[in-house]
Amino acid sequence: MRERLLFSKKPRFPLKIIILVLITVIILLVAYQLVSRAKWDGISRFTIVFQSISNSESGENELVIFSIEPRQHRAVYIVVPVELQLNVPYGYKTYLASQVYKLGKLDNMRGGGKLIMKSFESTFGIAFNGYFIALNNFPIKPVNTLEELINLKRTNFSFSGILNYLKPSLDLASNFDTNISLQERFMLWNAIRKIRVDQIKFIDLNETLVLKKTVLPDGVVVKELIPDFLDLIVKDDFYDSIIRADNTAIEVVNATDQEKLASQFSKILEHLGGNVVLKTSATNFEEQACPIYITNKSLSNSALISRLQRDYGCKLVADVIDIDQADVKIVLGKKFIE
């Protein structure tokens, strides 16, 4: 009888142990995402494009540029009209801002988020770190007025509002697309929490003189950016204070068959605070994305070099070379425009 009872017992794990194991696994997965994907340090210049896209009949579609430098306690929030014509790279030419993300969804190499981010970079001449696309029914959306921005900050960017901000990002059912890691989103929340509303410069491009209306051949009215006018109102809103303070002399070399590439990237570097002293074209094409040459090994750890490596995939050439007029030479190659 005893022998039968011994064999009839079925080994089983207590429910508490199973729950504990599941919680541990979830914590480890979240911790892995926090540690492994963060590229931003939380204090340098961080710029994103934030778009809301709805599939409803109203066709809600909002766009903003948000940029912050936590170490300087300053930020800029720019409302962008969806009927703005963007210069879309990779051979796409110009498209309405409202259509670029959808266009990118058909591009398996780049995707919608990267295409809208790079289109903003190309059009505005500003370095972008990331994108956040709030799709159908996502609770947090871009706002279009200063009053709405004040309310958004009060509601979501305080200790009492942290769950309003983070919960949608943690909810697997939420509908969004981003290349910003969970840790970076938390650091962004904390940086916005720490600044006052009066330290956020609010700009609605519709209320400025930087746009001009153009009628396309099919009768559609679009808006185009006037770059020189834009520079007048945002010249000092996107620089990184450390890169500007370093004042490193930069030479940008176009080693591709794409015209004006050196000038376009120089503008991005200048908005970031870089000191571009020379723009040239190479006699031979470069296959890699953007090799970096320096005149002094101490420059290898500079904020500028770190930014180029992190955001553009540039690689530092080991040998120190002599450069006539600059401290750093950036060679833009074929993979830079692919």
Results as ranks from 00 to 15, higher is better:
residue 3 E to Y: 10
residue 5 L to V: 04
residue 12 R to S: 15
residue 13 F to L: 15
residue 14 P to I: 00
residue 14 P to A: 09
residue 25 V to G: 02
residue 57 E to T: 07
residue 64 V to E: 07
residue 69 E to Q: 15
residue 73 H to I: 03
residue 74 R to D: 11
residue 78 I to Q: 03
residue 85 Q to I: 03
residue 92 Y to M: 11
residue 100 V to F: 01
residue 100 V to N: 01
residue 100 V to L: 01
residue 115 L to H: 01
residue 117 M to L: 13
residue 118 K to Q: 14
residue 119 S to N: 03
residue 124 F to R: 02
residue 125 G to E: 03
residue 127 A to F: 09
residue 133 I to C: 03
residue 135 L to D: 08
residue 149 L to Q: 01
residue 152 L to M: 14
residue 156 N to R: 01
residue 157 F to R: 07
residue 159 F to H: 06
residue 159 F to N: 12
residue 166 L to K: 03
residue 166 L to Y: 03
residue 177 D to V: 08
residue 181 S to T: 03
residue 184 E to F: 04
residue 194 K to C: 04
residue 198 D to P: 04
residue 203 I to T: 02
residue 205 L to S: 05
residue 206 N to G: 10
residue 210 V to A: 09
residue 217 P to W: 05
residue 217 P to A: 07
residue 223 K to M: 04
residue 224 E to K: 10
residue 226 I to H: 07
residue 231 D to E: 14
residue 233 I to Q: 11
residue 240 D to H: 08
residue 241 S to D: 01
residue 250 I to R: 12
residue 254 N to T: 11
residue 257 D to M: 11
residue 259 E to H: 04
residue 275 N to K: 14
residue 283 T to C: 06
residue 291 P to F: 12
residue 294 I to Y: 05
residue 301 N to R: 05
residue 305 I to P: 09
residue 320 V to E: 07
residue 325 Q to T: 13
residue 332 L to G: 06
residue 333 G to I: 09
residue 333 G to Q: 07
